[in-house]
Amino acid sequence: MKRLFVKSLPIAIALALSSGAAHAQSAVTVYGSLNVGLVASNFKTTGQTPVQGTNAALNNKFQMMDNSSLWGVRGKEDLGGGLYAGFSLEGGINLNNGTGGQDFATQGRLFGRNAEIKLGGDFGEFYAGYVLSPAGLQLLLAADPWYWNGNQAGMGWTIQQANYTQTNYLRTVGTIGYRSPDFNGVTFQLAYSPSNRENVYGTSKDIGGALTYRSGPLTVGVGFDRSHGLTNDIPTNHMYDIVGSYDFGFVKPAFSYTRSSVNNVDYTSYVLAATAPLGGAGLLKAAYGHLNDCLCNTTRSELSRISLGYQHNLSKRTNLYTNVSRSKAEGLSAANTFEVGVEHNF
């Protein structure tokens, strides 16, 4: 009975909120993204460069892989006088077997991607909950054309965060934060997690921030994050990043550069990427990423990944895509992947 209740809870919440939106005309939205690919790779579990999102040998045969499918509910209420209250709840879906994703199985997180309540106005927005760190969010939106969506081509959090995921895995528990309004293109975000609660990725006790400037086609930003690490001991771990992009219309180049320190080991990484529209419905993607030490084995092992992709939009909500990538770590054989897939947003 308990298992049935847990499995039915997401559906019940969605139906209840959507029903409330229909009768009370409240600003509540149910949304999601379903993304699945068929992947072939020469990846092996040992002696070979790790592949983003692949945890088992594919043996050159096509295998269905879920690429970060998700569902969520968000809402906003006008309180008058320029004030508003809102919330955001987002969880992962394993589309290949219908189970909950993003920490649902390991930690019971119904909304393992985001869970926050917020209060805002002209002064900006205060929020609290389980959220992405400001620097992690900045990197997520920066120089990976695949937005860390779980497929094999993306630069992903391992490269772009320079192994800092060992500390906070992007998201922090018990977080309070502030997002500023737009000051002539300049915005900033600050976050603090005072909690001692631990999860499988480490303790919270995290402080971070991000500063971003946007003006027309130009975007540049810097971010930082500091954490007490896996055991809540000194020394603290930290990460700094610099990101940027410029949209020329026919092509949009982008970059990210990250330095981190984890357990007294320093890491650096960079990503160079570009996207280009093709015709009225196509989008070309390309990226090269380099990490100075991927911890692929007991010795220093530099990792590089190059990826190419094409996305064809059938509509504003549905697209087909194909990706190829090659990952190579020092002292290990290369891992090559080919992927075709479909994504539908609602």
Rank of each mutant, 00 (worst) to 15 (best):
3 R>G: 13
7 K>F: 11
15 L>P: 02
22 A>I: 01
23 H>T: 08
25 Q>D: 13
31 Y>C: 01
45 T>Y: 00
45 T>D: 02
51 V>F: 01
52 Q>K: 03
53 G>K: 03
63 Q>P: 13
66 D>A: 14
69 S>A: 13
73 V>N: 01
74 R>E: 05
75 G>F: 04
76 K>C: 05
77 E>W: 00
79 L>T: 04
80 G>P: 13
81 G>N: 09
83 L>Q: 09
84 Y>W: 13
84 Y>C: 02
87 F>K: 06
91 G>P: 08
91 G>T: 14
93 I>G: 04
94 N>I: 13
95 L>V: 15
99 T>G: 14
101 G>N: 15
103 D>E: 07
105 A>M: 03
106 T>F: 02
110 L>G: 10
119 L>M: 03
123 F>L: 10
123 F>D: 06
126 F>A: 15
127 Y>Q: 06
129 G>V: 07
131 V>S: 03
132 L>H: 01
132 L>M: 03
133 S>E: 03
133 S>N: 06
135 A>G: 01
136 G>S: 05
141 L>H: 09
144 D>W: 11
144 D>H: 00
147 Y>G: 05
148 W>H: 10
148 W>F: 02
148 W>L: 10
151 N>F: 00
152 Q>V: 10
154 G>L: 06
164 Y>E: 02
165 T>A: 00
165 T>R: 07
165 T>H: 02
168 N>L: 00
168 N>Q: 04
169 Y>C: 00
171 R>E: 02
171 R>Y: 07
171 R>I: 00
173 V>M: 11
175 T>E: 12
184 N>G: 08
188 F>Y: 12
192 Y>R: 12
194 P>F: 07
198 E>H: 04
201 Y>M: 14
201 Y>I: 06
214 R>V: 15
215 S>W: 07
216 G>N: 09
217 P>W: 02
218 L>C: 06
221 G>T: 12
222 V>I: 15
228 H>C: 06
232 N>K: 09
234 I>V: 09
238 H>R: 15
242 I>W: 02
246 Y>A: 08
248 F>C: 01
250 F>H: 02
256 S>Y: 05
257 Y>D: 11
258 T>C: 08
258 T>Y: 00
259 R>P: 06
260 S>T: 15
261 S>Y: 09
262 V>T: 07
264 N>S: 14
266 D>S: 07
266 D>F: 04
271 V>N: 08
272 L>F: 06
272 L>T: 14
279 G>M: 11
281 A>T: 11
282 G>R: 08
284 L>Q: 00
285 K>G: 05
288 Y>V: 02
297 N>I: 14
297 N>C: 10
298 T>M: 12
303 L>M: 13
306 I>M: 08
308 L>V: 03
308 L>C: 10
315 S>T: 13
318 T>G: 08
318 T>H: 08
320 L>E: 03
322 T>M: 09
328 K>N: 05
333 S>T: 15
335 A>M: 00
335 A>H: 02
346 F>R: 00
